[in-house]
Design a binder for these strands. Structure first.
Length: 224
DNA sequence: GGATCGATCGGCT
DNA sequence: GCCGATCGATCCG
């Protein structure tokens, strides 16, 4: 039996939780019988009111209230009037922070995910935060759900080695004031083909002439 | 492969 | 009123 991540796992520093969530298995029970499972390959950390890209920058409001509560709870919100995003609340009770689950590799219940997404391209079933919630049939009704089940949970997985993890600035945060627009708090499995398409070029924020070559090289280097 | 654009609405200024 | 922690279609090269 796979072990379900416990509350203390989420109660730690958000960057640590984000990094360690890579390789873990996101699971979802639908229609009271079917189980959907997918391996997490891309996440982002959002940490506190100081983090000007984090929703908690506006303080405690009806929407962000859940981030101020106990860890190990789902924070799901609607964005662009049509897309849902899944986060795992982190840090001890009272600290507003969360990890956005951005992409995953489908493992089980793939046929149901195809139906939910309306596509047969398995690579795109959960490659992006909104695609992921659509594949797993998540919406506002699962906001504040306990991540230890029974509707939604995350299992321990095969750990991802440091050499296989890449970092980059967070996607879609370009309008946040510095340094929050560039801080490399996105973590992903470098060689996975299930990360959000078109976000690989964002690679580590190294600067200078040498970094330029690396950037183009990263894309061709990892293929599968 | 890359750039641009419209969809669509709750939450916050 | 404004604007997103986005996606997919479409156009171009």
């Amino acid at each position: 039996m796979p072990r379900i991540l416990s509350r203390p796992f989420y109660a730690r520093a958000t960057l640590t939780v984000a990094r360690e969530l890579l390789g873990c298995v996101l699971a979802r029970r639908v229609d009271g019988r079917d189980t959907l499972r997918a391996r997490i390959v891309e996440v982002e950390a959002y940490v506190g009111e100081e983090d000007k890209a984090c929703h908690a920058r506006a303080g405690r409001t009806p929407r962000t209230d859940v981030m101020y509560g106990p860890p190990g709870i789902a924070y799901i919100y609607l964005t662009y009037g049509m897309h849902y995003m899944l986060n795992a609340v982190t840090e001890p009770d009272g600290c507003p922070a969360a990890v956005l689950i951005r992409a995953a590799e489908p493992l089980e219940g793939i046929e149901r995910m195809r139906r939910a997404r309306g596509t047969d391209d398995d690579r795109l079933l959960a490659a992006g935060p909104a695609r992921l919630t659509q594949a797993l049939r998540l919406d506002l009704r699962q906001n504040r759900a306990d991540l230890r089940g029974p509707l939604l949970w995350i299992e321990e997985g095969e750990p991802v080695a440091d050499r296989d993890v890449a970092q980059s600035p967070r996607v879609g945060c370009q309008t946040a004031p510095p340094p929050w627009d560039r801080i490399p708090w996105r973590f992903y499995v470098a060689e996975s083909r299930f990360v959000t398409p078109g976000t690989r070029g964002l690679a580590a924020p190294t600067t200078g002439p040498a970094a330029r070559k690396t950037r183009g090289g990263n894309r061709a280097a990892h293929r599968r």
